[in-house]
Design a protein around this nucleic acid. Structure first.
Lengths: 187, 187
DNA sequence: GGGCATGGCTAACGTCGATAGCTTTAAGCT
DNA sequence: AGCTTAAAGCTATCGACGTTAGCCATGCCC
């Protein structure tokens, strides 16, 4: 029996990809094992449990989202930065619905949990997107939460098929970006 | 063996209550059976499957949310209506996290699915909350989606423990309501 | 009182997550 | 090179859970 040459990172990456393909709810240890060419119990040499796998996928997803948003904001400020961040975030969620779904409803276990750091990174990227707006110190956390709620809510609702009727969804999102921009401008 | 006097609605209500208590992910057919005083297979005389149970809980939750939001908006218009709707919605999600969680990620099976009607009712309640604002015909769907994304995003993020740091969450939500109000006022 | 639909029950199966314990691989030391 | 040993694979197995089959008691309707 030749070795498969697996590492935790390989397993997690394959799990994230599989979750994107079949949906997080249908991501099973057996399916993942088959995907990486190994028997189910062997996976437990690399991840502690399915919950552990989920957390690692979540950390990966948050880091990737932070990269996407951070990269999009690079060199921009004000409305351009805001729009770029929002679009990058939504695109990431729509492209990777499974791994993003892994991030909802899981709390970091402690302050040294990689997920916590990844979440901070994503938050930092959104903070950078607010650079250029005149936001009072006491309002910045509120604005950040507003922006995160807006992007998270829209992307997850769309990803779940929540927008059913006719109006064009992309158009709604652009409208929403302009709405947030106008609001942030007049503070 | 005396009859338990169950009906589908009883089972669904108990399931929703249990989901709120232990979390939707831990809602199991066995646990629900124990709760209603019956053996597991007997539940299948009232619901077709766990997926069916989930859909019925979702329909119940959407109807209750529509009632809550609709009732709160009653007799109000403009900023007052908007604030009342948003507060009622968030309160519902925080009070009933399990049954609300049942609504995310499930699509209505067809046009006669009770879930679709319930969703329309909730949408109608939010639409009523926008009465009093001067919104162009072509913008009303966008505004509705914005409002829904904002409320859904904030409530689910908070419900999942997504706001970890210090700033007061209630205060953020009130800030968010004022933000939306200002934006809707100037269109 | 005698059908008969209804709503319980027990028994059992398949799937899935997880653990135990064995074996083999391959890396590293002497 | 050859031995040691941790790591990584395997089979076998368990327990939980969803689901189905098939049986039996209840209680309504005539």
């Amino acid at each position: 029996m030749p070795r498969a040459g697996l590492a935790p990172a390989t397993v997690v990456a394959a799990g994230a990809a599989l979750a994107d393909e079949v949906g997080l709810a249908r991501l099973t240890m057996g399916l993942l094992a088959e995907r990486v060419g190994v028997r189910t119990p062997s996976l437990y040499k690399h991840v502690a449990s399915q919950d552990d796998l989920n957390r690692r996928i979540a950390a990966l997803a948050l880091n990737e989202a932070a990269d996407a948003v951070g990269g999009a904001v690079q060199g921009l400020a004000g409305p351009d930065a805001l729009a770029a961040a929002a679009r990058a975030f939504r695109a990431f969620v729509l492209d990777h619905p499974g791994r993003y779904a892994a991030t909802v409803g899981v709390e970091p276990t402690g302050p040294d949990d990689p997920m916590a750091a990844a979440g901070e990174r994503l938050l930092g990227a959104f903070t950078a997107a607010l650079r250029g707006y005149e936001i009072a110190e006491c309002d910045v956390n509120h604005a950040l939460r507003m922006l995160r709620s807006l992007c998270h809510g829209f992307a997850t609702l769309q990803s779940a098929g929540g927008f059913r009727w006719s109006t064009d969804v992309d158009e709604s999102f652009e409208w929403l970006i302009r709405f947030a921009d106008r609001g942030l401008r007049t503070m």
